[in-house]
Simulated assay, not measured.
Amino acid sequence: MNRRKKIKDVYDKRMKQANLKVNPKKAKPKYISKAEREKIAAEAATQTTDIETVETTTTEEQVKKDA
């Protein structure tokens, strides 16, 4: 019985490891370095400024048309 239990334990342990490799838990997000985070933030900032400039130019054009 003891020999069978040891074999079964080894088999179960290997199966558990194989299943974890196939279906990893995605609890932790992928690591993003500080430089990458700053780069993403800079891109987001430029996009928001671009959107603001487009909005201001459209409002100025509307004011000119109304006048």
Rank of each mutant, 00 (worst) to 15 (best):
I7Y: 13
M15G: 10
E55N: 09
D66N: 03
A41R: 01
K65W: 12
R3V: 02
K13Y: 15
K26G: 15
A44L: 04
A41L: 01
T58P: 06
R3F: 07
T49F: 07
A35V: 01
I51N: 09
A27E: 14
R3T: 03
A44E: 05
K16S: 13
V54C: 12
K28G: 15
A41C: 02
K26Y: 15
P24R: 00
P24Y: 08
A45N: 02
E52R: 02
E38K: 09
D66Q: 02
K34P: 10
V54Q: 12
A27Y: 15
V22I: 11
T48S: 10
P24E: 04
K8T: 01
R4S: 13
D9C: 03
L20N: 14
A45I: 00
T59L: 06
K25G: 13
P24F: 09
E52D: 13
M1Y: 10
I40K: 07
I40V: 05
R4D: 09
K26N: 15
K8N: 04
D66Y: 03
M1V: 05
A67I: 01
A35H: 04
N2R: 09
E61I: 00
K65P: 00
T56W: 14
T53W: 08
T48Q: 08
T46F: 14
Y31W: 09
D12R: 06
R14I: 08
T58D: 12
Q62Y: 06
Y31L: 07
K25L: 13
R3N: 06
N23R: 07
E43T: 00
V63K: 10
A27L: 13
V22L: 13
E60P: 01
T53D: 11
T46P: 13
T56R: 13
Q47C: 10
E60C: 01
E36G: 03
T59M: 10
Y31V: 01
V10A: 10
D12I: 00
A67Q: 06
A44V: 01
D12S: 11
K28H: 15
K64W: 06
V63M: 11
N19G: 05
E43N: 05
M15H: 09
K13W: 10
Y11K: 03
N2A: 14
T53L: 09
S33A: 03
Y11P: 00
V54G: 15
A44P: 01
V22D: 15
K5W: 08
I7E: 09
Q47G: 15
M15T: 05
R4C: 08
E55K: 07
R37N: 14
E52H: 11
T53C: 11
D12W: 03
D12H: 08
E43Y: 01
T46W: 14
M15W: 09
I7Q: 12
T49W: 04
V10L: 04
K30T: 11
T58E: 12
